[in-house]
């Protein structure tokens, strides 16, 4: 597959995620859109990893870094989700809503 296909697919997914973050007000959905963006990036990394593996092929492990990176992104995403959801639950307990527009308590 030409790499452009993957790049554009990832960019589109990423932008869908961004639009979600911008337009949705439910904190959980915003969070999910962030996950979507992360996954778009992951997909791109894997595609690039394969691109390098295919185009260079100098070493048996060329391009493997991209996949390792995806692995780490997943780790970070998992950690982020656990903390983030805890925060959302906390917020829900206090405000009885998950609308991010109520998250402006720090204003003023």
């Amino acid at each position: 597959m030409p790499i452009h296909y993957y790049v554009i697919l990832s960019a589109t997914l990423f932008c869908i995620g961004i639009i979600g973050v911008l337009t949705r007000r439910n904190a959980i959905i915003v969070f999910m859109c962030i996950e979507l963006m992360l996954n778009a990036v992951n997909l791109l990394l894997v595609a690039f990893s394969k691109m390098h593996h295919g185009s260079l092929l100098q070493g048996a492990n060329s391009g493997i870094d991209g996949q390792i990176f995806v692995f780490f992104i997943m780790v970070v995403a998992a950690a982020e989700v656990s903390v983030g959801l805890a925060i959302i639950v906390m917020m829900y307990r206090n405000v009885h809503s998950v609308d991010i527009n109520f998250l402006n308590r720090l204003k003023n």
Binding site: V21, L22, N104, K107
Partner: peptide, 14 residues
Amino acid sequence: IQNGQVGSYILVMV
């Protein structure tokens, strides 16, 4: 500028 709306921040960012 800091109106507390996360969305507007991200909008500016994008």
